[in-house]
């Protein structure tokens, strides 16, 4: 592991792979801006000086070998790491122009604004309807008919409405694995978050369910800033506008997926996508 060293703030250790230019033209203003982000598990630094910006209404995918820090990066964006002791992030992360790492940030409110879907489907032990309504009820103020219509539209957006509209009161855990995962997506988008984070969302699913989830993501692209972490290169190539390659805690390069997968600029990216390691 790399020993902990405090990076000199003024010195950019690695030139930020500036793809913002080529991307922003296509994709509009950035939703997430990350500057000089470092992350530590205890004394071990697991993210190194990451700087980048991610556009709204697009899908950004992060690829890289296990332990490269891509999941850690995701967990910084909604401060999930705060649930665990001895983990901390340094640097600047803005979502929608608002700093999220500061000490005065209301973490519950941040997580409400940033939805997350996990590797394994995690339906709560309650009905399909209550699963989706869970977040809406947390925010308060949404009841009755409005609640119903919000649940329905979330399920529609997640492309699972037709499959569950007759069993809204069945236990969420009784659905199939792929349906469970789309239920979790519906639950995450029901509160209309600004950003949707997905951590290996299809790793535990069969190919058909995977396809359905990918279609769902394609449809959601028009509304949300979506960040996906995946070890499935084809998936990144299929669904994302932008792909970032991470290696040993560093963001090696980031750019339009079409370019990353056809003509990567960094040798390590090339090695990884051609299957020479990882």
């Amino acid at each position: 592991m790399i020993p902990s060293t405090k990076p000199p703030k003024h010195l950019k250790m690695r030139p930020p792979v500036a793809v913002a230019a080529e991307r922003t033209e296509d994709l509009g203003p950035p939703k997430i801006e990350i500057r000089a982000l470092n992350f530590y598990y205890g004394d071990v630094r697991s993210l190194h000086n990451i700087t980048m910006s991610l556009a709204d209404k697009s899908i950004s995918a992060f690829i890289g070998p296990s332990g490269c820090g891509k999941s850690t990066l995701l967990r910084v964006l909604n401060r999930m790491y705060g649930l665990y002791p001895r983990q901390r992030a340094e640097g600047e992360v803005l979502i929608g122009g608002r700093d999220i790492l500061g000490p005065n940030v209301d973490v519950a409110e941040l997580r409400y604004r940033v939805g997350m879907v996990f590797q394994k489907p995690t339906p709560f032990p309650m009905s399909v309807f209550d699963n989706v309504a869970f977040g809406l009820r947390l925010g308060g103020g949404i009841r009755g008919a409005e609640l119903k219509s919000r649940v329905e539209s979330a399920l529609r957006d997640a492309a699972i409405w037709d499959e569950v509209k007759d069993k809204l009161h069945a236990d969420g855990r009784s659905l199939s694995g792929g349906q469970q995962q789309r239920l979790c997506i519906a639950r995450a988008i029901a509160v209309k978050p600004e950003v949707l984070l997905l951590d290996e969302p299809t790793a535990a699913l069969d190919p058909i369910s995977t396809l359905r989830v990918e279609e769902t993501l394609q449809a959601l692209r028009e509304k949300y800033c979506i960040v996906v972490v995946t070890h499935n290169l084809q998936q990144a190539a299929r669904v994302s506008n932008v792909t970032g390659f991470m290696f040993m805690g560093e963001l090696v390069e980031i750019g339009p997926s079409s370019r990353i997968f056809t003509s990567p600029q960094d040798r390590r990216t090339d090695d990884y996508i051609t299957g020479r390691f990882g």
């Binding site: 925010g139 103020g141 509160v191």
Partner: peptide, 13 residues
């Protein structure tokens, strides 16, 4: 956009 009723949030806390 996701909006939390501030009074509700205070109660949660």
């Amino acid at each position: 956009m996701a909006i939390i009723d501030p009074r509700h949030a205070a109660k949660q806390l």
